[in-house]
Amino acid sequence: MKLLIKGGIVSAALFAAFGANADEEASLVINEDIEITVRTDAPAHLDNMRTIYSGWVYRSDETQALQMDDFENPGMIFVDDAIDVWASADGSEGKGCVDCHNEPASMAGVRATYPKWNEEAGEVRTLAMQVNGCRTERMGAEEWKYDGSDMLNMEALLASVSRGMPVNVAIDGPAQSTWEMGKELYYTRTGQLDLSCANCHEDNYGNNIRADHLSQGQINGFPTYRLKNAKLNGVQSRFRGCVRDTRAETYAVGSDEFIALELYVASRGNGLSVEGPSVRN
C-alpha cells in the first residue's frame, strides 16, 4: 500500500473513502513570503528512509491552509503573548529577555539547533531547558513549567523567528551518547500493543490507522497548535501521548529519556524547515 503511494500511483478508490486526506504534493509558503521545506532528502544517519516529510504534508487541505497565513494560524496569537513577556522584567534581577537579547528577531536560527549540548551545564539542553536556564540563572525568576503555557508561548515565539531555516541539530561530539539513547528509545517496542515509534512513523507513514493519517512524527513544526485541543502542544507531551497509546507506562515530560528522544527525533528532521507554531489536527 505504502509503496504504491510512494510510487505515485495513488488509486482514486483508495482515497475516495477518506475525503479529508491531504494533498501530499503541496508546497508551503507562509504569508506569501517564507518558503518552508516540507520534503527533502533524509539525513545521512537515517538508514531506512530516503525522503523526510513535515507532518504538514499529511494534513487535510483545510488544516494545511491555516498555516499559510499568520492571520489564519491560531498559534500566532500565542506568539503575540510571548512578545509582551519578552519585554517584561521578571525575577530578582529586574530583567526581561530583551535586556540580554534585544529584539526577538535576534533569536533567528536558535530553534533550529536545539536540543544541543551546553558546555557550562555539561548536559544536552532542550530549548525549554535553556529558557528556564536564563530565567533562573540570569533573571532570578521562577522556572516555567515544562510544556506549560508560558513556556510553549515563548517556544512559539522562538520558533516563529526561525521559520524557513533548516533544522540542524548536532548528533556527534558530547551530544552523541544522548543521541544514541534517543535512537534506542525510538526503536524500542513498548506497552501491551508492543509498538515502537518506528512501527508507526517509519514503517507506516502515509497510511491510515483508523481515522488518523500517519506522518513521520517529525518535530520541526513544534510547538503545534492542535485543532483537537485548541491549544499549543509541546514535543514531549506529544511523545507522552503516543507512548500512552501503546498501552505503556510513559516517561515523564522533562525526563532524561524524553530529552534524549527529542534530540534523536529532531535529528531525523535535519534539513526540514523550522515551521512552528504549526497547525495540526
Partner: peptide
C-alpha cells in the same frame, strides 16, 4: 509484525495500565 497480540499478557516492555500512561497496577 506490527499487529498486536490479542491473547498475551507477559513479555512486554513497560506495560501500562490500559491507556492511562501509568504503570500496570497488577497482572495484565
Amino acid at each position: 509484525t506490527i499487529m498486536p497480540a490479542f491473547y498475551r499478557t507477559s513479555g512486554f516492555t513497560r506495560p501500562g495500565d490500559e491507556f492511562t500512561g501509568e504503570a500496570a497496577a497488577g497482572p495484565l
